[in-house]
Design a protein around this nucleic acid. Structure first.
Lengths: 155, 155
DNA sequence: TTTCTTGCAAAGAGTTTGCAGCTTC
DNA sequence: GAAGCTGCAAACTCTTTGCAAGAAA
C-alpha cells in the first residue's frame, strides 16, 4: 500500500528533488504533528530527538521546499514566527484557523466556507483567486466553558 | 469641526497617552497613505521627510501604541514584514485584502463579506469571534488585463 | 565525476530594549 | 521634579546564505 510518505517522495522526485533522510525525518515530524502549527524551531527540536545531527538550516530549507511544492502551507498568526501546516491531500484550498486570544490554541476548520464569498470577489472585483488565508481571532469553546464555570462559582 | 486627528487625540488621551509631535506626524502619514499598506520602515521614511529628527524606534513604539488602541491594524502578508493599516472609523471588523501574486499590489475590500461565515463558525464551532483576517492571493484585474493584451498581441 | 544536499557559522533583516537626555505638567 | 516620551545604539529573534565537506546518481 502506498503511504503518505511515498506520495510525498513521488512529489519530490517529480520536481527533481530527493527524499533524503533529513527531509524524511522532517516530513515525519510534520505528519506526527498534523494538528499542531509548528514553527521552524519547533520542527527542528522534534526532528533532533530522532536525528540529532540535523541542522536548523536544513530544516528551514526543507520547509521552504515543501512550501514551494505546496505540500505544506506557511502561515503567520501575527507573532513574528512562521508556522508550517501540512496540506490535506487533495484539498483545493488552504483550511481556516481559529486562534484563541485567551489560551492561544489554534483549531482548524477543514470545511471550505468561502465558496460563496470567493464567487462574489471574483465577480465583483474581477480578481482571479488562487489561494486564501482566513483566520478568526476570538474565544474558543474550552475557554468559554471555563469562564462559565468561574461565573457559576462566583455566585 | 472635529477632524480625524482630533478624534485620535481623544482616544489617546482617554488612555492617558499624549499626542506628541512625533506621534502626530506618524498618524498624519498613515492618514495620507490610507490606501497603502506601509511597513514600519516605510512610515519612518515618510515621517522623516517632514520631521527629520524622528527615530525609527519612536515610529515602532507609536505604531505599537496605535495597534493597542485599535486605531491601526497590524497585518502580515507572508513576507517577513509587519504592515500597518488604519482602521475605518466605526468599522466593526477588519477589512479584507486582495494580494496580487503577479505585481504585488494589495487592494482592500471594505464590505463585510463574512457575516454568514461567522454565524456558521460561532454556531458550529462554538467560537466567539472577536476579529478576523481574510486575504486572497491571486491575480488582480490590472494584471489580468495586461495578460489578455499580451495574448492578443501574440496572435 | 558531477550534481545535489548538508552542517556550521556568519550575515542579514526586522524589531525591541536600555538608557541618558529632554518635555510637559 | 516626577512622569512620560524621544533618539540613539546595542541587543535580540527569526531566517537566509556562503562554503567546504559529504552523499548520491
Amino acid at each position: 500500500m502506498e503511504t503518505r510518505i511515498d506520495r510525498i517522495k513521488k512529489l519530490l522526485h517529480s520536481a527533481s528533488y530527493k527524499l533524503t533522510p533529513q527531509r524524511e525525518s522532517t516530513v515525519r515530524v510534520l505528519l506526527e504533528h498534523e494538528e499542531d502549527h509548528l514553527s521552524a524551531e519547533d520542527v527542528y527540536l522534534l526532528v533532533k530527538e530522532k536525528s540529532p545531527e540535523i541542522g536548523l538550516a536544513t530544516v528551514y530549507r526543507t520547509l521552504e521546499l515543501l512550501t514551494e511544492l505546496k505540500i505544506v502551507d506557511k502561515i503567520n498568526f501575527g507573532d513574528g514566527v512562521s508556522r508550517y501546516d501540512l496540506r490535506q491531500e487533495g484539498a483545493k484550498h488552504f483550511h481556516h484557523h481559529l486562534v484563541c486570544i485567551e489560551c492561544g490554541a489554534v483549531d482548524e476548520i477543514q470545511d471550505d466556507l468561502l465558496e460563496d464569498v470567493e464567487a462574489i470577489v471574483e465577480r465583483d472585483w474581477n480578481f482571479k483567486i488562487k489561494d486564501h488565508r482566513l483566520t478568526f481571532h476570538g474565544v474558543c469553546h474550552r475557554c468559554q466553558d471555563s469562564e462559565d464555570q468561574t461565573e457559576e462559582e462566583s455566585t
